[in-house]
Computed example of a mutant assay.
Amino acid sequence: MSEVTVRKQRPKHLALNEIRLPIPGIVSILHRVSGAGLFLMLPLLLSLFGNSVGSPESFAAYKETVSNPLVKIILFGLLWAYLHHFCAGIRFLLLDMHKGLDLPTARLTSKIVLGVSIVLTVIIGVKLW
């Protein structure tokens, strides 16, 4: 008897739009993206902080810069990135302590991280806007 092996046709390219990540995977990727975004925006944040505490003239320039709607949207995004990175970091610390490793708990904590980060962003963003 001869056995015939049939090989499955593999795709030639990776279709990223067809990949369906579970919620814990999405939270993990957003955690990395938010960390990278915060790191890359650090010079902007430091210059804004320097302008806000330098002198009364630089504070006036800071207020004028921050009152621009485009800058407010960027700062709103950075606020979300910080809050998401913080909340997801707490989740990952708990995972490192072997808390919440089972699938239902991991999915629940991922949903909690997304919800809490969005709610905190809206609350703080509305107060600061």
Rank of each mutant, 00 (worst) to 15 (best):
R107H: 03
V27Q: 09
L78S: 02
L40Q: 07
S52F: 01
L128Q: 02
L46N: 00
H31C: 09
L120C: 05
K99R: 12
K127G: 06
I124F: 04
L120E: 03
R107T: 05
S58H: 11
L108M: 08
S34N: 09
K63R: 11
V4W: 14
R91V: 11
A61P: 01
E64C: 10
V66N: 06
N51M: 06
V27L: 08
N17M: 12
L70C: 09
V27E: 00
G50K: 04
L108V: 10
S28C: 11
P24W: 08
N51S: 04
L75R: 04
D102A: 10
L83D: 07
P104I: 10
G25L: 06
L38N: 03
I124V: 08
R10H: 13
R10G: 12
I118P: 00
K63W: 05
K127N: 07
V6W: 15
V126C: 06
G77M: 12
A61E: 06
G100W: 00
S55T: 05
G115R: 01
G89N: 03
Q9M: 14
G89Q: 03
L38R: 02
T65Y: 10
K63Y: 10
P43I: 02
V27C: 03
K8S: 15
P69A: 08
F92N: 10
G35C: 05
S117Q: 02
G35V: 04
L101I: 10
